[in-house]
Design a protein around this nucleic acid. Structure first.
Lengths: 343, 343
DNA sequence: CCGTTGTGTGAGATCGATATCATATTTGGA
DNA sequence: TCCAAATATGATATCGATCTCACACAACGG
């Protein structure tokens, strides 16, 4: 069925030279006679020789592949980064292996293992857990190039590209407070994830710096999924004394919150003010448009690739942990709560 | 720097047997003594032997990799399929190589070539062009397993999983006509893409079956991108006599149309009725919610994987071209045009 | 005219895993 | 007891590309 591919041997035979000479002609190293070289090149062309990257990889010890492991490829945030990484890598002839961890540390471990045995040259990972990192530490110690994105891990000594989650969350909550809100709800991701921790920290800092108490009943843990967030939002707003404002820690949760609130007949911003982390195209489609903390998403992928390729090429520069600032984009989803004094 | 990985040789040495015996013990074939087997297994475990999939691939002639080539991984439609394919493949120990063609036939060719020389086991492709298919035909003739998704190609003899584009478009336009619209605009994708052709055909059929003329000035060609679609929409509605309704052929274009109309101060459905092809979560966030032709997206990825794995495992069943029906989801973006007679 | 560089080429080792083949060694049945 | 079958193991070829090494031959200076 599947025809066997043309091998170097075939080309060498057709050109009437040895495999060694054929290889030299094709790869342009060592001494090759002009005439022999021409014959080889012509034969290769005629036979449609493509070379076997697997064999090359075995010889060289590495495949020109990069593993990309997002928490969820359907999250537009990761999809965008995947796209940028793909484009960026194409320039250096690498291909992209995408394997979603589905936010499961177990699965992350297995996939990392499986890809490593493929002799992948390096990884770009959004680590699922802030704590269970033995596998990542092991990889780093083995000298495997890794760049963490979105979520940095202090105990894993490798490059990372992240965003100022704490600062972004603080700014969002400060903004809500400045608008007169005192009971500010938080739809939070699993605290295993570092970004969730950072954003929670920012939330708490903002409250404390204004002398507000952190009320556990205003915080609800969901998952980064529209469906879960709908449910979480409904549960949060079914509790005795409702928040007047809501901060959601990622775009899918913001969508979920929007739907959850709508299903309860709560209007944004009339009944509840809303600020989300991570901008998303939907945010400008709603009425009112949603105020969000935007991340410089276009910069994350390219920088991650740049750092990774540097490591792959043997750079031994000190660990580089890039952290981009966020930007609060004020749109129309926040208003002063009923009965709040004008400042 | 990078530690060399543990090889079979190391394990064999540690277990004090030959490589052959070690391989037998690890892979469970042929005769192996119970004691030797135990020693090998234990040594492998102790050393953390993982096996080198590249070497295995060289030997076997194939890597357990599947190439997935969408037009654009950022399009939620493809992101969803990528996710499903990833999950499905995990069950059979394959990894997913994702390489976006970016709707460029040239790039599609190069990537296909590059992945083929990686001894990928098969491809799932959303072919960019309905016409330039020499490369796909060549692959099929070489016996490389391929499944086309979203877009079938009559001249490429391989399995495919698609959707009834013509029928879906017809239904959408029929619905607009039934609501009294006579001037129905079309925001269309590059006619190189087969889905675009099918949806255009459906649009034309619906018009003709109601005795309506196809007015070229109501059709505008965009690209599957929010930005392009905004622009196209604005241009379309800047022409002398505007349509009263609009049909957009994919979700990104629907978004673009929405934004374009808004920027021109045209309200949906008051000024313009809108039906889009492909459902998307945003469609229910807008006010009004958008009426769309939905595709059974959850079924596409799994079926494509199933068909592909069958081919990989040597099935020689006749070519299977699955086509799912679409479903019109009526929401609130269509109303009767001003001055239209009630039926 | 001979040794030294400089060219051009092929034989063969290598990467790591696997499978075939040949060679022990044991077991079982006649 | 003896031979055949069953069991266990190692040596080695193989997958395809690359690269070192050794060898051949030319050109060149002294």
């Amino acid at each position: 069925m599947a025809q066997k591919a043309v091998t170097l041997k075939d080309v060498a035979l057709a050109a009437n030279v040895s495999r060694a000479t054929a290889a030299r002609a094709l790869n342009g190293y060592g001494y090759v006679g002009g005439e022999a070289s021409a014959r080889v090149l012509q034969a290769a062309d005629r036979l449609g020789y493509r070379g076997n990257r697997v064999a090359q990889a075995l010889r060289r010890g590495q495949l020109p592949l990069i593993g990309f492991m997002p928490g969820d490829i359907q999250n537009p945030f990761f999809a965008r980064i995947a796209h940028d990484v793909d484009v960026e890598l194409r320039a250096s002839n690498h291909n992209l292996l995408i394997a979603s961890s589905e936010e499961d540390p177990e699965q992350e471990m297995e996939l990392l293992d499986s890809l490593q045995s493929l002799n992948v040259r390096g990884f770009i990972v959004a680590p699922t857990s802030a704590d269970d990192n033995a596998h990542l530490i092991r990889l780093v110690n083995e000298g495997v190039p890794i760049v963490l994105i979105d979520r940095a891990l202090p105990d894993v000594a490798c490059d990372s590209v992240t965003v100022d989650n704490e600062g972004g969350a603080r700014e969002a909550v400060n903004y809500l407070i400045a608008n007169g809100h005192r009971r500010i709800g938080l739809v939070q991701d699993d605290s295993r994830i570092t970004t969730a921790r950072g954003r929670l920290a920012g939330y708490i800092q903002a409250l404390k710096s204004h002398g507000l108490e952190v009320d556990e009943s205003l915080i609800i843990v969901s998952r980064s999924t529209v469906e879960y967030a709908i449910d979480a939002t409904i549960r949060l707003f079914s509790r005795p004394s409702r928040p007047t404002a809501l901060f959601t820690v990622d775009s899918l949760m913001t969508q979920g919150a929007l739907l959850g609130l709508r299903s309860m007949g709560l209007a944004v911003p009339h009944d509840v003010s809303l600020v989300g982390f991570d901008d998303f195209n939907l945010a400008t489609f709603t009425d009112p448009q949603i105020t969000v903390v935007a991340q410089p998403i276009a910069q994350i992928g390219p920088l991650a690739v740049k750092l990774l390729l540097q490591r792959i090429n043997g750079s031994s520069e000190p660990q580089h942990n890039a952290q981009f600032p966020t930007r609060l984009i004020v749109r129309g989803s926040v208003s002063r709560p009923a009965g709040a004094p004008l400042r």
